[in-house]
Structure formats: C-alpha cells, structure tokens
Design a protein around this nucleic acid. Structure first.
Lengths: 116, 116
DNA sequence: ATGGTATACTGCTGTATAGGAATTTACAAA
DNA sequence: TTTGTAAATTCCTATACAGCAGTATACCAT
C-alpha cells in the first residue's frame, strides 16, 4: 500500500480487520491453532454457546480465515492460513512496545519522587 | 501467539484491529503515508469534515498509530510506525489471493460452458 | 483586548452487530 | 420412519460507534 488506495479497496481491507476486531473470534482462531476442531469441541474449549461459535465460524469462513470439512454429523474447522498469526504477532509486538514505554514512564516518575 | 492467550490480551489485540476496521481511518493513514499533515490538509485530502477527521485522529493517536506535534495554530500528525502498512500488506496479499481464486473459478466455469 | 482561524469536544441519531433463546436443517442409527 | 445429535439459522434486544451539527478551546494577528 504505497500509494493512495481507492475507497472500495479500503472497504475490503477494513472488512478483514473488522473480523479480527472481536475477542471471541480471536479466541476461536487461537484454539484452532492447536489443530482441526468440530463446533462442539470449540464450544468446550471456549465456553461459548453453540450459536455463538457457529455464527463466528460462518463469518471467519466467509472471509476466508478458516476452512471446513464435513464428516457425518460433524463439521471440522481449521485455519485457512497462518496470516492471522502474522497479523496478531505484529499487534502483539506493538502491545509489548507500549507496555515497555509505560514501564519506563513509571520508573521515571518513581525516580522523580525519590529526588523530590 | 503460539499458545492459548488470555481473554484480556485478546481484548487488547481486538481493540487494535477495531481501529483499523474503518475505511475512513485507513484512508487517513493512507494519506499520512505521503508525509506529515495538519488536520486541515487531511480534510482536503480526504474530503471529510473537520469533526470527522479530528475524532478519527484522536482514536489513532490514543492507540499509538499516529504521533502529533503542535506548531502555532496547527497540529501536525504523522505515522507512528510502518506496522500499519505491514498489516495492510498482509491483508492485501490475501485479497489478491482471493481475487485470483475467484478468477480461476470463473475460467473453470467458462470452460465447462464451452464443453457443454 | 478583539477578531479570526485551527482543532477538540459534546450531544444526538441512525446503523451495525454481538449474544441469547428458540427453531430449523442435516445426518446417522435404530 | 422415528429418534437423537450436530450445526446452522432466525428473531430479538442491547450496545457500540460513525457521522453530523453545534459549541468550546487554543492560538495568532491586529
């Protein structure tokens, strides 16, 4: 994204971020990182109700974040790609930087207190 | 994010994605990529109203996506880091992959049509 | 101080969506 | 076919937030 991007493309990008902007969906993705899971297994792993899990999975599926396969009664969901975690890692790195910075400020304040 | 992450951290991550999940903010960030800008310049570049630009900038500033400096009447905003574009690039790559896949499907359908 | 401009803030409305309860659909076994 | 279980969907309510209009604040110039 080196130049001015059209509103249409910006909307598509925003739509992707919107899907990741929900702790419940991130949790589901996080659980899926341990491997393929059925909806029921995801319910147990997350503590969410069935409708909630299913609805979030639909969204994730529709936007290509997860794949699924049907086997008898069960539907197995799995991550479609590792990109999600690339994205989360970048965000986590930022969180770490922010935390460090806050820590520095606190220490600076403590230092001032000692001097005063 | 290799193991199960706590709900608190997931909320922090989601919060960051939420800020990026808005075309207007992405557009502002996109414009800022061309260099430091005042609110007024951003209004002209985006066509947004003053209140809109200002509010989005507050959000972006509070979550550390942009920095600012005051000079007389003007406040100059600039990108705090290139991470935003790392994130967008990953998403864009995904969009490209999706587009390619759709294209393939269309061509496959066209092929079937020719055969039939 | 006064007037004028840049930016931030407040109150409001409409829209989107998360989550719960209940229902429906899909499938397997008896 | 009937029964039971898994998953998807529908309807509903509450909440969050984008965007607008208007107002307030900060700062410069005269």
């Amino acid at each position: 994204m080196k130049r001015i991007v059209s509103p249409e493309v910006l909307e598509l990008i925003a739509e992707r971020f919107r899907v990741l902007a929900d702790p419940a969906r991130l949790q589901i993705l996080n659980v899926l990182q341990t491997g393929e899971q059925t909806v029921t297994e995801l319910m147990r792993a997350t503590g969410f109700r069935q409708a909630k899990v299913s609805k979030h999975l639909q969204l994730l599926y529709n936007l290509g974040f997860v794949d699924r396969r049907k086997e008898g009664l069960h539907v197995y969901y799995r991550l479609a790609s590792e990109d999600v975690f690339l994205l989360c890692d970048i965000v986590c790195r930022r969180l770490q930087v922010e935390a460090d910075r806050r820590q520095e400020v606190l220490e600076e304040l403590a230092g001032l207190g000692a001097e005063a």
